[in-house]
Design a protein around this nucleic acid. Structure first.
Lengths: 343, 343
DNA sequence: AATAGTTTTGCAAATGTTTTCATAAGTATG
DNA sequence: CATACTTATGAAAACATTTGCAAAACTATT
């Protein structure tokens, strides 16, 4: 159908084909109601014949929105982030936005560089993951006066509107649950916390909640384990082989907890009668694993959706009513992997 | 640091601050070697003081590359796609490209619309997932003369260079493995195949491989199960409750196989002595689950990386040497979930 | 110190749009 | 059928850059 000429069709090509001026073609796209129906039809056919595709770059230099949103995440390799991004993308796509996606792998320096690149592309808004970022990052966003939301975590006084779950609350909920079952000999396994405020907040609150109840986690029951089922399985296998075993294990996320369940199974121990295992996140498989995992639900899809809606609102009504933070509350999900301390 | 003026800084603001012309500032970025070191320093400081950020949109209308690549996937919710995208993104980021990401949810109509949007943004190249797409999609890409690769699947005569695994081979490998263990009573569980050439190809080749060996799968042992651990667990629980049970179950992907393992455990059956369960994909947790899953590895990271390298090459050397297809061979991974037929 | 050659810089045109303003074409009113 | 509106269209300026060409500023050579 498309008469591919030598050069790609521009608005002038279309104008000539339709025997109108370029301005009229521009109006055809932006204010079609201003055109006579007959002209509209003529242009319609010309667009089709020439295979014209609008050039957003040319529009963007007029201060018109680019229709893109920059999404900056640590990594897609954690299923939960993939889920958030998917929901976010679907949400903003409804309003015609496309996402520019990049991951920094927990490297704050890279985050700054990526943000700059986003701004070069004149994104209409940006989403960062988590609350803590380099001060330079915040200043850059400030200086560009571009809408921004912090997704995934929630905190009342965040530097930009935050939309997500309160991680401290999540950690507290799971710690209290374990305590309420009577456990006192508790081990903890968290991912490395460098550059990862989420993991850090969770760990700290878990420990302080336990301490408030008079429970101290001995150093050799504190594991820093990379985000991987096999690493967790390995560490847990090692832990459970020792003479003195904890009665409960609190994991910083469901992936670690999954590995822990596998590790316990490999050691021939029963969960929860021999040991209670809990996670944080409520990832996809967590309800189906045997035994089903007790965890705290972080509503990923909802967070992504709400963050998308909020940012789009911020972009469309630029400045008018500033976007507010939104707490998507975490929720304790008690399943079979936790039970009262036996003995 | 950035003196935020009222309006955002443009190249002219910088030029004035550095007491040079706009052209010189442009050269500072694009051909710095043409400038006198002293001028360079002056501009450097001006850029810093004004907080100037280059405008790629303005560059792009000069036919300069936009530095973006459109990535079109079915969904991020399948961890394996997230992994491919992550690897792809990392790969092209090395050459300064940023990805525009969108998912079509297996809706071919939406795929066309998204592609158009990508082209409006003047992406330098596009990646589609899988081999089968609407003819209109291919024509659109043809007409724009833009580099394209088909990622994830491989097939010799694909319409555009394909970089991925041969799904037929993957299906054949797993079917042959199960047959080689002596199984004859075999059930199959595949995801719905509508609009999903990968799943379709896998299913068809599995069935035909079995048939070639004289094994026919009865209709009530053919499950069409949505991509979810719980759905699979449910269906498998139902299957295993029947009087006549298969000795092996071939699943279209590792998620379904994981659910099947859980289902078997819930029914009190032992894998593999009561039933062999195999998957396709070798997803992240598959090696750690108990029992570890026998599957076919589809090298997601490698595929993403190679696709990225190939597309970037295609973009940079536009036209010169056309990108070739690349087969990232699937590989059978025998673990504990499969065993010889007993009985 | 004049000349030729080289390096550095600026001017102006070009890129593909949108938009303001002005003009041309219709339409209703007297 | 002239007049005053209204509606539809075009011309040209504006947007933020890059780039070809020409001029200016150096350097080296005599």
């Amino acid at each position: 159908m498309a008469d591919k000429k030598h050069k790609k069709a521009d608005i002038i090509t279309v104008a000539q084909a339709a025997r109108v001026s370029a301005s009229t073609v521009s109006r055809y796209f932006n204010h079609p109601e201003l055109l006579k129906p007959a002209t509209r039809k003529r242009i319609d056919s010309a667009v089709r014949r020439t295979g014209y595709i609008r050039n957003r770059a040319a529009q963007t230099i007029h201060g018109i929105r680019s229709g893109t949103i920059g999404v900056l995440i640590p990594t897609l390799d954690h299923a939960i982030f993939a889920e958030v991004v998917q929901a976010f993308s679907d949400s903003v796509a409804e309003d015609g936005f496309t996402i520019l996606l990049a991951s920094h792998g927990y490297d704050l320096q890279r985050e700054y560089a990526i943000l700059r690149k986003f701004l070069e592309h004149r994104v209409d808004g940006v989403v960062l993951t988590g609350l803590d970022h380099d001060e330079a990052v915040f200043q850059l966003i400030d200086s560009q006066k571009i809408p921004c939301v912090l997704m995934w975590n929630y905190a009342a006084g965040s530097r930009y509107p935050s939309i997500g779950a309160d991680n401290e609350l999540a950690g507290q909920l799971i710690a209290e649950h374990v305590l309420s079952l009577g456990h006192r000999d508790i081990a903890c396994m968290f991912p490395p916390t460098g550059g990862n405020d989420r993991a850090m907040a969770r760990r700290d609150i878990v420990l302080s909640t336990l301490e408030k109840a008079g429970v101290t986690v001995p150093p050799d029951w504190m594991f820093e384990t990379v985000y991987s089922i096999s690493a967790s399985k390995r560490d847990v296998t090692e832990l459970l082989a020792r003479d003195h075993r904890p009665t409960a294990l609190i994991c910083g996320n469901d992936i670690l907890a999954t590995g822990a369940l596998y590790g316990a199974a490999a050691c021939g121990l029963d969960v929860p009668s021999d040991i209670t295992v809990v996670g944080i996140g409520d990832f996809k498989g967590s309800s189906d694993i045997e035994p089903a995992l007790t965890t705290v639900r972080l509503p990923a899809r909802r967070i992504g959706r709400e963050a998308g809606k909020a940012l789009v609102t911020g972009i469309i009504s630029l400045g008018e009513d500033p976007v507010g933070s939104l707490h998507c509350a975490p929720e304790i999900i008690v399943r079979q992997s936790s039970g009262p301390v036996s003995g």
